[in-house]
Computed example of a mutant assay.
Amino acid sequence: MKEDMDPDTGVNGTTNGDIPEVELIIKASTIDGRRKGACLFCQEYFMDLYLLAEMKTISLKVTTVDMLKPPPDFRSNFEATPPPILIDNGLAVLDNESIERHILKNIPGGHNLFVQDNDVARKIENVYNKFKLYLTKRDEGSKNILLGHLKKIDEHLGAKGTRFLTGDTMCCFDCELMPRLQHIRVAGKHFLDFNIPSDMHHLWRYMKNTYQLDAFTQSCPADQDIINHYKLQQGVKMRKHEELETPTYTTSIPREVTEDLYCITL
């Protein structure tokens, strides 16, 4: 199934002059097999390419594939290779590192997204792994380790004073971090009753800035798909009524955080 996106960005087959078309195949929802799934890498590269489509350097087509029932042409072309899969001018790029390298070196405008910042890379590289550890152990020690990593990102954003991790425009690091923060927010609340602390003002402002961008909202999976992603990892079966639920998307800022941010700006 092909997702419908904003035609002004040149996605999903909308051509803008002679700009090249790039296709990204992503995993479909494990609930309905049609909408966007909760694969972190799929959303990360979706965001990268969406930003380039907004800059009119490419036309982007996004295709979702139900990996429980992949269509015959997918099986014949890619065998057991799971998405994300990037197709550029007939060339299929199949693994994550190669996709990232291809966007950097071969997709028009891609080099603008991939800035060099070793400090930022170090600060964000382990935050998701610490969340997974907390999901497994469910103890105060692993919770505090996760909070420590989030605090470092919050402090970095405060010291930097910019909208995003390296400046006032999004880069590859933001496309990597924000999907993981969304999983931490949604799955953390559901499974652990964990909330990103409201006093991490710089981190919440960063999330608010990202929630306002189409690159994130168009690529973001439903809350139910994020939750089901971890249920499947834990061997928990989906209940029938979950298939019938209207998908929800947590992209608002908690009221107490909004009030705090307002007071800080006064």
Rank of each mutant, 00 (worst) to 15 (best):
P72T: 08
D73F: 12
H111S: 15
P84R: 12
F114E: 00
V127Y: 01
K123E: 13
P70D: 09
I99F: 00
V65F: 01
K132T: 05
Y128Q: 13
T63I: 06
D119H: 15
L94P: 00
D73P: 07
T81G: 00
D88P: 00
Y134T: 01
P71C: 04
E125G: 02
D139H: 05
R122V: 11
N96A: 03
L113D: 04
L104A: 03
R122N: 13
N89D: 14
I107L: 02
S76A: 12
P72L: 05
K132W: 00
T63M: 05
I124L: 12
N96C: 04
T64N: 09
P83V: 08
Q116A: 14
S76M: 07
G109R: 05
V127M: 12
Y134K: 02
N126P: 01
Q116P: 08
T64I: 09
Y134E: 03
R101F: 13
L113P: 12
P72Y: 08
R138V: 11
T136A: 01
L94F: 00
T136K: 11
N96D: 09
L91G: 02
V120F: 06
T136I: 07
T136R: 11
N106I: 03
F131W: 02
N126Y: 06
L68I: 04
L135P: 01
D95R: 08
S98P: 00
I103H: 09
D88A: 07
N112H: 08
Y134I: 02
I124Q: 04
A80T: 15
H111Y: 03
L113Q: 14
I87N: 06
N77L: 14
P72F: 08
S98Y: 06
N126K: 12
Y128R: 07
K137R: 13
S76I: 07
L68F: 13
V65W: 08
N126W: 01
N106H: 15
H111G: 11
